[in-house]
């Protein structure tokens, strides 16, 4: 196992490899023979209509959902039949942000950030833990006084940021984000995109991003995976996807909202270019 170098390492090595995945709830089949590769160092956006199993796919990869059949490898290790030591090692190398933040409601924000640190590195002293949680909280765009607050005292957007701070606590190599910008105001959403992008650059993160936010797709995703018909029907850059003749993809990117997102992405490019 080699440690990743600093910065984007777009070397084509698959950090997540899903093969022949099948998930079903009773009679209802969610995924059937689904394949997906996520390359090290990229931000991959996962899109699909409601109910196409985007969250279920993420839950399968992080081991919360036992699939019927199929193999899932993360960091080259199978997550489905990993022994305890391996799965602990995998877990400390990824961070997960759930849709609602999923903060522990009885702990303050700072304590929430410290939970994974304490769990995996029990020898860190309290002062360093406090400092780490403090700068992580500020890094994710929360005010410095948010640390001692309880999740119930935070707004929805702040909970998301606090959740992100916790998912980044271990400086993971792989970050799972489930609709991080849903429910944020446009300014907050853009700042979140910017934050994700800069973390990906500086930490060499790989990001698995489930989103409905077309602006995020245009702004930060290296590639986009489209979930439909129980499979990943296409993976590629947005331009590559637009060249495909699939009705859902065409409707998704060429609908009124898709076109608006292109315009705003172009405008942003012009402004930053000028």
């Amino acid at each position: 196992m080699t440690a990743p170098a600093i910065g984007p390492t777009f070397d084509g090595e698959a950090i997540i490899r899903v093969r022949g995945l099948r998930n079903s709830f009773g009679e209802q089949v969610i995924h059937d023979d689904l394949d997906l590769d996520v390359k090290r160092g990229e931000i991959i956006g996962v899109v699909g209509g409601s109910g196409t199993g985007k969250s279920v796919l993420m839950r399968s990869i992080i081991g919360l959902q036992q699939p019927d059949t199929g193999t899932i490898e993360v960091f080259g290790e199978s997550v489905l039949d990993a022994d305890v030591d391996d799965s602990v090692d995998i877990r400390r190398r990824w961070g997960v942000l759930f849709q609602g933040g999923a903060l522990f409601s009885t702990l303050t924000v700072a304590e929430n950030v410290q939970v994974p640190l304490r769990e995996f590195y029990p020898n860190l002293d309290q002062r360093l833990l406090d400092e780490i949680s403090a700068y992580k909280v500020v890094m994710t765009g929360l005010p410095p006084d948010a640390g001692p607050k309880y999740p119930a005292e935070l707004s929805g957007g702040m909970k998301k940021r606090a959740g992100l701070a916790r998912s980044l606590a271990l400086d993971p190599e792989l970050l799972f984000l489930d609709e991080p910008t849903a429910g944020l105001d446009p300014i907050g959403a853009a700042a979140f995109d910017e934050l994700t992008r800069s973390l990906q650059r500086t930490l060499g993160l790989t990001v698995f991003l489930i989103t409905h936010d077309l602006d995020s797709l245009y702004a930060i995703c290296d590639r986009v995976a489209v979930l439909a018909d129980k499979r990943v029907i296409a993976v590629g850059t947005i331009d590559e996807l637009l060249a495909l003749d699939h009705p859902w993809i065409q409707e998704y990117f060429n609908g009124p909202r898709g076109r608006a997102a292109v315009t705003s992405a172009e405008r942003a490019a012009t402004i930053s270019g000028a």
Partner: peptide
Amino acid sequence: LDENGRHLFEQVAESDHPIEAP
């Protein structure tokens, strides 16, 4: 530090705020 390292270092330095002692 190389460029990415410097960027990371700046980000961390920017996030340095004194911790309010209880």
